[in-house]
Design a protein around this nucleic acid. Sequence first.
DNA 1: GCGACAG
DNA 2: ATCTTGTCGC
Length: 223
Amino acid sequence: MADFALLKAEQQLLAAQVVREGLSPDFVPRFIAGGDTGFEENGTVARAAIVILHWPSLEMAEHRVARVPVTLPYVPGYLSFRECPALLAAWQQLTYRPDLMFIDGHGVAHPRGLGIASHFGVTVDIPVIGVAKRRLCGDYQVPSATPGDCQPLIYQQQQTGWVLRSKARCNPLFISAGHRVSDDMALYWTRQCLRGYRLPEPTRLADAVASQRKGFRRYLNRQ
DNA sequence: GCGACAG
DNA sequence: ATCTTGTCGC
């Protein structure tokens, strides 16, 4: 059984290292990455996927998958300790160095300001944006049905991110800064990476690779 | 004590 | 996260 009090203390140390600014208006990335984690073997093995996309085409340049034994159970608020090891294993396999990365999960929109996007971001020290499908903490007004509309996510009187209606008739996304990105740039770049689907391309493709969905393996193995 | 609770 | 086909609605 894990000592969550110790993990909590570690989160507070790492949270102090998170940089909530970065990506100037003239920033132009060469490569944008997407990361996501899935599980197999009855949840005993984490399967992390990282994809590298060209900007601005957003076409895949590289994709890597790493499988690592799971060491912790899923506990809300401690997700990063469970998924970071696999994500780091996939990270070390990359040949490209992304200028910006999107990770499935929250960034600073976390009780202690250290969701997986921030934890991973501080660890590898690159700009990271968190894209979650559900709220962990905070309050917000539901954005209108109009695609592109958004509302601020507020936690303890402070903005921690945005709730974005990325696509019509779909539940909104929870966008937050992970590391070396401001709230506004996190929202801006998420919108820049949308291509008609609920999820921005980096996360959408990483999810497809990580969850070995039937039909997508064919897509990757073709040519 | 009760409800909430990323993936 | 994962187990899983078709189906209702826009």
